[in-house]
């Protein structure tokens, strides 16, 4: 390409001038860099998220699985108590007692007894 446009000539000239720069690091910079190199490397481990920390506190995924299973079982026993539980509660409290933790549970229990 023999035809060049003037802005590109200028740009090519500027690129060439930039490429010609060959700065020599001075003593102060070298000292800063070597001081960094001499410093012990901090152990940078990513911080676990709050959820991950709570999970670890409980005992990891296996513990969470058991916890979930126990929760489901508890809710189910609440909704449809096997006779042995109902008998035990009656024996203990002297009468039939129904306890619910939330409005939804009452609704679910209601649905079940209706059906």
């Amino acid at each position: 390409m023999t035809m060049t446009n003037p802005p590109d000539d200028m740009l090519d000239d500027l690129f060439a001038q930039a490429r010609n720069l060959a700065p020599v690091p001075d003593d102060a910079l070298i000292a800063r860099v070597l001081a960094d190199a001499a410093r012990p490397v901090p152990v940078l481990r990513p911080q676990p998220s709050v959820l991950a920390q709570m999970r670890a506190m409980i005992g990891g995924w296996p513990a969470l699985g058991s916890l979930a299973a126990a929760t489901v079982a508890g809710i189910w026993i609440g909704i449809a108590p096997p006779p042995v539980v109902a008998d035990y509660a009656t024996g203990l409290l002297g009468e039939t007692v129904s306890l619910g933790l939330s409005a939804e549970e009452f609704m679910i229990a209601g649905d079940l007894s209706d059906g």
């Binding site: 700065p23 910079l29 070597l34």
Partner: peptide, 19 residues
Amino acid sequence: AAEALTQRLLPRVLAQALR
């Protein structure tokens, strides 16, 4: 090793940044 690396690489890094 850090001194040798600095001698070798710092001028190149500085030049790249200055350009």
